[in-house]
Design a protein around this nucleic acid. Structure first.
Lengths: 169, 169
DNA sequence: CTGCCTGCAAAGGATTTGCACTCAT
DNA sequence: ATGAGTGCAAATCCTTTGCAGGCAG
């Protein structure tokens, strides 16, 4: 009856974690669960926010542990982070493989573009802070050019571009 | 005999400052002088670094004042900042008009951070931290697309893109 | 069992704020 | 003169670290 009995991505993450020789503990499970849930809701959480939710979910887990966990899980490749607005760093599960979000993405109408995960790039509104996902292909041109001209390999999903969203223009 | 008797840009900045109804004080002069000097050297300074240099230049100016000054000068439009690597925020004079830096830029300096100025976009190497300038036009494609699809107005010079430079690939 | 991971608590570093005073205008 | 700007110092905020004990493997 629970809506999300055990996200397949969460399971995969835990498996990967063990593969990497890391231990699976309650704290790590809680962190991954929180991040996975946020991913599903297209939310971008900072270390602090993750800490808060973990605290709500598993009060025995200490803040410090959350920070250490985020670091080790990222090192292990289970988590990835994106730098937003030059200020915040948000975490998400490292998408092992591109998933097919059932939703009809590609739409522009409302707010977001598509979903989180994989190689998405991000843009953030400097006014309202909202984060929008951008299909990686949107940056292909720049990426190619940077590689050509500067030999610079662009990581399209590591940092957010800034600007103003339609609501704040 | 001083190498930089009084940078025209510094003078202009001070003038603009007054125009905006802001007062010209020793502290602000010092901050602007430090930032202008760094600009000339194609350096990117964080608030903290600016604070350090101001302290060396004008020991009576308090750290807190530097922070407040950076904020007000930015609000006044005299200074602008760029977010690097998603972590650091660096300041530079707002280029009132595109200037011709005598130096042969476009090239990657030696170590540290590189470059500044007007509408340049920035890319930063996640490995060595080096910052490269990118002509704004390189992002025109993305910018157009974001505006079209999302109504998002991209600010190409506000945040740095991340990746790996040729040396660190 | 062994040592990786955790809880706790205290340290740390960067930025901010209240308040009274000073100086630019 | 008059209030924007400043100095000082304490207060925050977020994150990290040293240690001893506990649990995963």
């Amino acid at each position: 009856m629970d809506p999300a009995p055990a996200s397949p991505r969460l399971t995969a993450a835990l498996a990967l974690l063990r593969t990497r020789g890391e231990r699976v503990t309650p704290a790590r499970r809680a962190v991954l669960q929180v991040v996975d849930a946020a991913d599903g809701a297209e939310e971008h959480l900072t270390a602090e926010q993750i800490g808060a939710r973990v605290a709500a979910l598993e009060p025995t887990v200490h803040r410090a542990t959350v920070y250490r966990t985020l670091t080790s899980l990222t090192d292990a490749g289970v988590l990835s982070h994106v730098h937003l607005g030059g200020t915040a760093t948000v975490y998400h599960l490292t998408a092992t493989e591109p998933e097919r979000a059932g939703t009809s993405e590609a739409e522009v109408g409302t707010a977001a573009y598509g979903h989180v995960h994989s190689g998405h790039a991000h843009v953030q509104c400097v006014e309202c802070g909202r984060v929008l996902d951008v299909p990686p292909e949107a940056l292909e041109g720049v990426a190619a050019r940077l590689l050509d001209d500067l030999g610079f390999t662009l990581d399209t999903s590591h940092a957010a571009l800034l600007g103003r969203c339609s609501d704040c223009t």
